[in-house]
Amino acid sequence: MSIQHFRVALIPFFAAFCLPVFAHPETLVKVKDAEDQLGARVGYIELDLNSGKILESFRPEERFPMMSTFKVLLCGAVLSRVDAGQEQLGRRIHYSQNDLVEYSPVTEKHLTDGMTVRELCSAAITMSDNTAANLLLTTIGGPKELTAFLHNMGDHVTRLDRWEPELNEAIPNDERDTTMPAAMATTLRKLLTGELLTLASRQQLIDWMEADKVAGPLLRSALPAGWFIADKSGAGERGSRGIIAALGPDGKPSRIVVIYTTGSQATMDERNRQIAEIGASLIKHW
């Protein structure tokens, strides 16, 4: 067993022997301040990774656009098919120029040779490549099948209805392509620590998230040296922004954090800054 596999296998073990965790309302004060600064709703939840206990939450059962955070769930569904012998990570998928959609920095470079399922998941999570996500959605049967996968996990809230990039439209009061912070946090925890996926697939999923290259201005910008984070960000229309993450000190994750916002007129930089400040408060009061 590799060191990384050992780390993920012992996530519940280490967490069980940690000192009790206590909620700190100071972080919620910052979440509410972010709402004021952005002029928009902000949803927040913080779960203990081992027990699933909610440590703090704000608007945990209000719907927010998922945006690209759905790509972690998508690759979880792909990995479940791999575990069941219905898919192979090494299978190569070929596609054409007509398949390319807006923001496809990886797939646009491989029109000639195609990409493997493993490479597509890596591109979808680490670079948020939209064509990679659409190609992977095709392998599982489309958005409705991802929703069905989530329902089978016990998540009857999260739903995907459309493809990239239309799913980022974020129309107010439109339930399409949305989740709730509580539902997303619980589902992410199941994917990373539950028995739904094999140990190898859980490790692969967290490795992809740990290698995320496009979430630097968010929670990662607030992390002290030595902290662990595996995350996936999302951005959408109407001032929408979000991030889902597993993080913790001492090089291992111990909490799940989900943050979503929508309806702001603020710039992307300002949305990023507010999420980073929430992260800084979380870490300060850990």
Score class of each variant (00 low, 15 high):
Thr27Cys: 02
Leu28Asp: 10
Val29Met: 03
Val29Ala: 08
Val31Ile: 11
Lys32Asp: 05
Asp33Gln: 01
Glu35Lys: 02
Gln37Val: 11
Leu38Asp: 00
Gly39Cys: 14
Gly39Glu: 07
Ala40His: 06
Arg41Leu: 11
Val42Thr: 15
Val42Ser: 02
Ile45Phe: 00
Glu46Lys: 09
Glu46Ile: 10
Asn50Phe: 13
Glu56Cys: 12
Glu56Met: 15
Ser57Cys: 15
Pro60Gly: 07
Pro65Lys: 02
Met67Ile: 14
Phe70Tyr: 02
Leu73Gly: 07
Leu73Thr: 12
Ala84Gln: 04
Ala84Phe: 07
Gly85Arg: 15
Gln86Tyr: 15
Gln88Asn: 15
Gln88Phe: 11
Gly90Ala: 03
Gly90Tyr: 04
Arg91Thr: 07
Arg92Pro: 02
Ile93Pro: 02
Tyr95Phe: 06
Tyr95Pro: 02
Ser96Phe: 00
Ser96Val: 00
Ser96Tyr: 00
Gln97Cys: 14
Asn98Val: 01
Asn98Met: 01
Asn98Tyr: 00
Asp99Pro: 13
Leu100Ala: 09
Tyr103His: 13
Tyr103Phe: 02
Tyr103Gly: 01
Tyr103Trp: 00
Tyr103Ala: 02
Pro105Ser: 10
Thr107Lys: 09
Glu108Asn: 00
His110Pro: 01
His110Asp: 00
His110Val: 04
His110Glu: 10
Leu111Ala: 04
Leu111Ser: 10
Thr112Glu: 14
Thr116Ile: 05
Val117Ile: 03
Val117His: 15
Leu120Pro: 08
Ala123Met: 15
Ala123Leu: 15
Ala123Glu: 15
Ala124His: 02
Asn130Gly: 15
Asn134Leu: 04
Asn134Gln: 09
Asn134Cys: 05
Asn134Lys: 10
Leu136Cys: 08
Leu137Phe: 11
Thr138Ser: 09
Thr139Arg: 06
Gly141Asn: 13
Pro143Ser: 06
Pro143Leu: 08
Lys144Asp: 09
Lys144Gln: 14
Glu145Asn: 04
Glu145Met: 03
Glu145Asp: 01
Ala148Thr: 13
Leu150Pro: 14
His151Tyr: 10
His151Gly: 08
Asn152His: 11
Gly154Phe: 14
Asp155Glu: 04
Val157Ser: 07
Val157Tyr: 09
Leu160Trp: 02
Leu160Phe: 11
Arg162Gly: 08
Trp163Asp: 13
Glu166Phe: 13
Glu169His: 06
Glu169Ile: 06
Ile171Asn: 00
Ile171Cys: 06
Asn173His: 07
Glu175Leu: 13
Arg176Ala: 12
Asp177Tyr: 12
Asp177His: 13
Asp177Ala: 08
Thr178Arg: 11
Thr179Lys: 01
Met180Trp: 03
Pro181Tyr: 01
Ala182Trp: 11
Ala185Asn: 05
Thr187Ile: 10
Thr187Tyr: 08
Thr187Ser: 14
Arg189Met: 15
Arg189His: 13
Arg189Ala: 11
Lys190Gln: 14
Leu191Asn: 08
Leu191Pro: 14
Leu192Gly: 11
Leu192Tyr: 10
Leu192Cys: 09
Leu192Lys: 08
Leu192Ile: 05
Thr193Ser: 08
Thr193Tyr: 02
Gly194Asp: 14
Thr198Asn: 14
Ser201Pro: 12
Arg202Glu: 10
Gln203Met: 07
Gln203His: 09
Leu205Tyr: 01
Asp207Ala: 12
Trp208Met: 02
Trp208Val: 00
Glu210Cys: 04
Glu210Leu: 11
Lys213Ile: 10
Gly216Pro: 09
Gly216Asn: 12
Gly216Tyr: 08
Gly216Trp: 15
Pro217His: 11
Pro217Leu: 08
Leu218Cys: 15
Leu218Ser: 08
Ala222Gln: 04
Leu223Trp: 10
Pro224Trp: 05
Pro224Thr: 03
Pro224Asp: 12
Ala225Phe: 03
Ala225Cys: 15
Gly226Val: 07
Trp227Leu: 06
Trp227Asn: 10
Trp227Gln: 14
Trp227Gly: 06
Phe228Glu: 01
Ala230Ile: 09
Ala230Glu: 15
Lys232Gln: 14
Ser233Thr: 11
Ser233Lys: 15
Ala235Gln: 05
Ala235Tyr: 04
Gly236Val: 04
Gly236Met: 03
Glu237Val: 11
Arg241Gly: 09
Ile244Glu: 10
Ala245His: 04
Leu247Ser: 12
Pro249Thr: 09
Gly251Ile: 11
Gly251Gln: 14
Gly251Val: 09
Lys252Arg: 09
Lys252Ser: 10
Lys252Val: 11
Arg255Leu: 07
Arg255His: 03
Val257Gly: 03
Val258His: 03
Val258Phe: 07
Ile259Ser: 08
Ile259Val: 09
Ile259Ala: 10
Tyr260Lys: 03
Thr261Tyr: 13
Gly263Val: 13
Gly263Trp: 14
Ser264Tyr: 13
Ser264Asp: 03
Ala266Gly: 07
Thr267Asn: 09
Thr267Glu: 12
Thr267Ser: 11
Asp269Gly: 06
Asp269Ile: 13
Arg271Glu: 11
Arg271Cys: 10
Asn272Trp: 00
Arg273Thr: 14
Arg273Trp: 07
Gln274Leu: 12
Gln274Ser: 09
Ala276Met: 08
Ala276Glu: 13
Glu277Ser: 12
Ile278Cys: 14
Ile278Leu: 11
Gly279Asp: 08
Gly279Thr: 07
Gly279Trp: 09
Gly279Val: 03
Ala280Cys: 12
Ile283Cys: 13
His285Ser: 02
